[in-house]
Design a protein around this nucleic acid. Structure first.
Lengths: 212, 212
DNA sequence: TTGACTAAAAATGTATACATTTTTAAATTA
DNA sequence: TAATTTAAAAATGTATACATTTTTAGTCAA
């Protein structure tokens, strides 16, 4: 595998795990030394992560991991709230039963793993959502949603704590499938809206109580 | 000035001008030779433009300029329609008269240049919109809107043709300012929605009649 | 002719070396 | 002391050289 790709995944994971704390300066040299590669792949990866807003400018020189804040989390969820119900509505006309079936399989997988970490649960969750959005055939929209998800994923860290939400959230997923199966796009979009809104509020509250 | 920055601006402009036609393969070597620099800055710039979706994968190797299509334009405007009224609403509480004044100055500038190309007019237009969104204090939202604008700007190319819309569009800008001055955020957001919707429809129609 | 294998060529990835810019810290002067 | 200048150090930008991968073209065998 290419060093660039390895490094990309590794650095991202390390950021999530807090190995590179928010707010401290990261330089090419530092990272090149730490990961034992030359600065060239480091440059590539840093630039890519900056484009994805996983790294932001540190003053004039270098980059840093952006701090996690309730304010930012709220922003991310406000945007999701505008885009995801739209994506779902656009996807509905192209959604077939085989795709709904795949989504159900995913939900079963989640059910079978009550021991998963918050992060792992978040990933499966997103896979479920994405499966429903994919058929909308809007590359830019899907690209932006994927970026948003990855931003949100930072907030899930690798924390083990559950946020006392999984049960309700899970129920709503099954309801969503049911509404889609019955071809009720408006009701599905509305449920999705409330679903995301609730998750957002919970995360924001959590962050206000336990600042990162 | 850094070669990377120069190259970034130059390549972007050249893409807009159609010097690198949509659908043909672009390689690092090719561009490095053409712009008389080494592959290093070319790599950086290509990667950045890929992140902004100004370049997309060409099969397995290399990148290409994505074709301009009515379908894509419609997608971009659908997303703007979801995000920009929200940005405006969020900005309203922080909008002060000095910012409204700046926006008015911009409108006057546009008025004084009826000879500007479609592209130049589009830029001034965007400066106006952005000025109203900036105070929303949502970095991700502003980043996404900026990206969307740049995508849309590709569609304005360097065409000289007006699309017979400037007058109405311009009037609506003044109306928008007026509503904001009167502190009517909902009405302003609604006007903005219709404003963007009309512009989008016009662009899509234009593309359907004159495919790129 | 077709298909698979092989060698050549081209493109990309990465390291090293050097150039340029930026930062830092020391030294000088008011 | 405080401010300014200057020299050193550190970081980044870029070119060249080399390694690796991918494509292409051609050859041979069925």
């Amino acid at each position: 595998m290419l060093k660039k790709q390895q490094l990309y995944l590794q650095l991202k994971q390390d950021i999530q795990q807090g190995i590179w704390p928010a707010g401290i300066q990261l330089t090419q040299q530092q990272l090149a030394e730490h990961y034992a590669v030359s600065r060239i792949p480091v440059r590539d990866v840093m630039q890519q992560l900056q484009a994805e807003a996983w790294l932001i400018p540190y003053g004039k020189a270098g980059l840093m991991v952006p701090p996690l804040t309730a304010v930012e989390a709220e922003e991310l969820y406000q945007i999701r709230l505008q885009l995801e119900p739209m994506a779902l509505q656009l996807a509905v006309p192209h959604l077939n039963f085989s795709q709904l079936g795949q989504a159900e399989d995913l939900l079963m997988q989640i059910t079978r793993r009550p021991d998963a970490s918050l992060f792992e649960r978040g990933e499966l969750n997103w896979q479920f959502h994405l499966l429903l959005y994919q058929p909308c055939q809007r590359p830019h929209l899907l690209r932006m949603l994927t970026g948003l998800h990855q931003q949100v994923a930072r907030y899930l860290g690798f924390q083990e704590q559950a946020m006392d939400y999984s049960d309700i959230s899970h129920q709503e997923h099954w309801q969503l499938i049911e509404l889609l199966r019955q071809n009720k796009p408006d009701a599905a979009a509305e449920l999705l809206y409330q679903h995301i809104a609730k998750a957002g509020e919970l995360l924001v509250q959590h962050l206000q109580l336990h600042p990162a």
